[in-house]
Simulated assay, not measured.
Amino acid sequence: MNNTVAPTLGTDASQRLHRAQDVLQVCAYLLSYPSEAWWVALDEVAALIATWAESPVKDSLGSVVEYITSQTQRDYEDEYVRVFDFSGNTNMYLTSYDATNAEEQAAELLVYKEFYQKHGYEVVRELPDYVPALLELCSTLAVAEALPILTHSKASLAVLRQRLIDSQQVQAFVLDVILLVIERWEGATR
């Protein structure tokens, strides 16, 4: 997974479907580690968000970008590392939120690994439950292919969201958007 943003804009029904997938891709990007390449692409992400119609999704993700750009690169990187790398409470690995023992966690990791393999991908640098990689893959799939794993992940994403809210982290807005996309897709398939 490479966290690239490939906008697909338009107004017909098939293009709106891709827009939700673009939203997931932007969410994956915003939750990724802020490397040098990440900072370079941040302007492209902001420009993409600016093209979207007014909505709570646009407002939420736009606010996250505004928050990030209001800080120095070093300050945001330090915050990101503190929140996601040095905290057992808020990290990017979904199995840490719902598995109560090593055996359950291994079984959950296998579910994620099989999802990647089913779609021709392999996660090399991260565990398969790593949120940005999972979102990026789901952003490339049709709703019918992405929804089962997103639904499987929904409870853990909700736990992460609540923990980010409790610790007053801006990334909670990104989790709000992810959960909104999942709920909309679930509603569309009922």
Rank of each mutant, 00 (worst) to 15 (best):
N2M: 04
G10K: 03
A13E: 13
Q15N: 08
R16H: 04
L17E: 08
L17H: 10
H18E: 07
Q25C: 07
Q25R: 08
V26H: 05
V26K: 00
V45N: 02
A50T: 08
T51E: 14
A53E: 15
E54L: 02
E54I: 12
S55R: 15
D59C: 00
G62F: 05
V64T: 14
Y67P: 01
Y67C: 11
T69S: 07
S70P: 01
Q71R: 11
Q71H: 01
F86K: 10
N89D: 15
L94I: 08
L94H: 00
T95C: 10
S96E: 01
T100E: 10
A106D: 02
E108I: 07
L109C: 08
L110D: 03
L110T: 15
Y112S: 04
Y112T: 05
H119T: 08
E126L: 05
P128C: 15
Y130E: 01
L137K: 00
C138Q: 03
S139A: 13
T140K: 05
T140G: 09
V143N: 03
P148S: 11
T151I: 11
T151N: 03
T151F: 00
A158C: 01
V159L: 13
L160E: 04
R163Y: 02
I165M: 08
I165R: 11
D166Y: 06
S167Y: 03
Q168D: 14
Q168Y: 09
Q169Y: 04
Q169V: 14
Q171M: 07
A172R: 07
V174P: 04
L175I: 12
L175N: 06
I178F: 03
I182S: 00
E183K: 14
